[in-house]
């Protein structure tokens, strides 16, 4: 089985996540101001890190696709944008659930939250564009350009808490986080990284199955339109 290693890395990721959240929920201390609610840190921060990293993969894949014109790079654009979008959506939901009991609101238009919401829309547009274009070379070119342009926002999302006044907390570092909280945070981050890697690889395989046919025979006639029944 050629997909054995991706299944292995996915299972390893889930196990690491399970151990991380066990430590996070039962071993690590509650947060001094937020109490038990603060434990969502171990889910939220890894989702953010890995989500941004997945978009970075999409950006690199888009450059590769434009340089080579190959289906393999195009499939990686599709796979990584889709997994990145999933993590991005999960990130916003986790953030809202955390914000209500701590900040007092589910949502506010602060720079970090606003740019993260824009990120969902921008990469959502990339996927929508891919569904609209039938010619594989045109689809590759247009969706790769859209991915590169959408990626501009990713470093902005990351730096937003440094550049502007926000309600969202600034970067934390091991110096600002209790050592017993750093352990589950790191473990969960690698768990998320492995799971997402497995997802991207699996999604890449699925995309390849369709794109290989598209790229080899781009001039095949489109599927016939269903017969219309006259009434």
């Amino acid at each position: 089985m050629k997909n054995r290693w991706e299944i292995a890395i996915g299972i390893l990721g889930f196990l690491m996540l399970a151990v991380a959240h066990y430590i996070g929920l039962f071993v690590s201390p509650a947060e001094a101001m937020m109490g038990d609610v603060g434990r969502i840190l171990y889910a939220h921060v890894p989702t953010a890190w890995v989500g941004l990293l997945t978009y970075l993969v999409a950006f690199i894949a888009a450059i590769g696709a434009l340089l080579s014109g190959k289906a393999a790079w195009d499939a990686l654009v599709e796979a990584s944008v889709e997994v990145g979008l999933l993590l991005n959506a999960v990130l916003l939901i986790q953030g809202s659930l955390w914000a209500k009991p701590t900040w007092g609101v589910f949502w506010t238009w602060d720079p970090r939250l606003t740019t993260t919401a824009i990120m969902v829309v921008a990469f959502g547009v990339v996927l929508a564009l891919r569904r609209q274009i039938d010619d594989p070379q045109r689809r590759l070119t247009i969706s790769s350009v859209a991915t590169i342009v959408a990626f501009v926002n990713v470093p902005i999302v990351y730096m937003s808490v440094k550049w502007w006044r926000t309600l969202h907390q600034n970067f934390s570092s091991p110096e600002t986080v209790d050592p017993m909280m750093v352990i589950p945070l790191r473990l969960a981050a690698f768990g998320m990284l492995f799971i997402s890697t497995a997802f991207v690889v699996r999604r890449w395989r699925i995309a390849m199955a369709g794109l290989r046919v598209d790229f080899e025979a781009p001039d095949l006639p489109a599927a016939p339109t269903p017969l219309k029944v006259e009434d």
Binding site: M34, G35, W103, Q169
Partner: peptide
């Protein structure tokens, strides 16, 4: 009309002897 509380980037354990319930 809307009060929002900001949390810093410091995540600390509660001080010795404080129970989580007291935080609420």
């Amino acid at each position: 009309s809307r009060l929002m509380v900001k949390h810093s980037n410091e995540y600390k354990a509660p001080e010795e002897g404080t129970s989580v319930e007291e935080l609420y």
